[in-house]
Design a protein around this nucleic acid. Structure first.
Length: 271
DNA sequence: AACAAGACCTGTAAGC
DNA sequence: TGCTTACAGGTCTTGT
């Protein structure tokens, strides 16, 4: 499921659990990317949820005694259900609340996602500690990208997908932002001009913001139909459009592999 | 320090 | 129809 907009949509979708009290947590299968700690249910049962936030693609649920941190990996989803609903294949975790007839279920076919219990300072949590800047904040701009790209020879697409640089830019929106910016994804990061970096930063913000807006429009669907209305509803300019005509110039969109990830671009519009 | 490649796992679609 | 293969939204870890 997740590019950043889907994670943000998920966070907004489960905001309603703020101030709820956890009754119990059932772990049906702890074998996610990392084993789910087996003291998690005991530790959090009876505890109040203080807030739900996002950092990068991590969902951070602040409880009265610890943080519950969730990453959706490639195929993870959080969905509301009734306790009486039959479990679906790959439902791995269920959170039940006091005085709430809806439970939350974590479903993840590929199990690349993870669920963590952070008892100490969140900033010291290893997976969050070394993350780069959020793309939607003011401080993320062309100058930031240009400065960070000095002496970086990796492809610009790989560069903007590196979350030590900037978080939350996944494979789809990397291709899309580069298309809008007229930058070929294979170009070395250090060769992209300052002016182009300004355009790129703007377009990264743009594609993510628009996707979040669209995702937001499907929040009710997310609650009722168990998710899934994500970015495949949104028209892409290049992603997954190999051999189809470029919407700007009509040339055939090309596909190539960069950093082991498929990448799409228009060889006319992107130099 | 920077980079490339490998690893994790299941479902789906395409190819034979 | 069935088997085999390639590929999929992520990112940590290992090796050069």
């Amino acid at each position: 499921m997740p590019e950043l907009p889907e994670v943000e949509t998920t966070v907004r979708g489960i905001k309603s659990i703020e101030s709820s009290v956890i009754e119990k947590i059932d772990i049906f299968n702890p074998n996610l990317r990392w084993p789910v700690p087996n003291d998690l249910p005991n530790f959090l049962s009876g505890k109040k949820i203080l807030s739900v936030h996002r950092r990068a693609k991590y969902i951070i649920i602040k409880c009265s005694n610890a943080y519950l941190v969730i990453h959706l990996g490639m195929t993870g989803k959080l969905v509301f259900a009734k306790p009486s609903d039959t479990l679906k294949k790959h439902d791995h975790i269920q959170i039940t609340f006091i005085n709430n007839e809806q439970v939350i279920r974590y479903n993840d076919p590929r199990r690349f996602g993870s669920v963590h219990l952070v008892k100490d300072n969140l900033d010291d949590f290893k997976l969050l500690a070394d993350l780069g800047i959020e793309p939607l904040v003011f401080e993320f701009d062309g100058n930031y990208l240009f400065t960070k790209a000095r002496k970086r020879n990796v492809a610009i697409k790989t560069f903007i997908m590196n979350h030590h640089i900037v978080v939350g830019v996944g494979n789809i929106y990397a291709s899309e932002a580069l298309f809008l910016s007229g930058i070929r994804p294979s170009v070395s990061a250090c060769k992209v001009t300052r002016r182009k970096m300004e355009i790129l930063a703007k377009n990264i913000k743009h594609v993510l913001s628009v996707a979040i807006e669209k995702g937001g429009s499907t929040i009710s669907d997310f609650m009722n139909t168990k998710g899934e209305q994500g970015y495949f509803q949104i028209g892409h300019q290049v992603y997954n459009r190999e051999d189809q005509p470029c919407n700007k110039c009509g040339a055939k969109i090309k596909k190539t592999i960069i950093g082991q990830r498929s990448s799409f671009f228009c060889s006319t519009c992107q130099r």
